[in-house]
Amino acid sequence: MRRWLTALVAAALLWANAGLAQTPPPEARLARQAIEQILTAWNTPELGHWLAADFAGRDQLLAALTFDVPATARLRILAIGPVQVLEQQRGAGTLTSLVSVRVRAQAEWEQPGQGLQRREGTAEYILRITREVPR
């Protein structure tokens, strides 16, 4: 506990001295926000709009959700792990990044007669993020 208090005091001191420094690259923040939206869309008709047409397991995933997963099941994010930029490609005024995000999430649903059910797992998601950058 003592080392954490020391760390928090150090954080407060750094905070007090922080100036308006250069904006950091937003890929990690965008990836975290995108993961929250994608996992909110899990098991809803919107999920298909997030999946790339060339994602190999696209149709198997959508068919499994349709036929095998309880209709009211939802995902809760337990922890977002490391976010890694795997590749970046510049286009005309754009920067496309392939970003890997490791997420620990839990499916939850109400099972009649058995109450709340939860199943957790860790998965790696590969996101393609395109944003405008100065030419």
Binding site: A11, W15, Q22, T23, P24, P25, P26, L95, P134
Partner: peptide
């Protein structure tokens, strides 16, 4: 949480 960003924007430096 307290996050300290270490980054620089590729767009402005590339």
């Amino acid at each position: 949480y307290w996050r300290y960003d270490l980054g620089k924007d590729l767009g402005s430096t590339g």
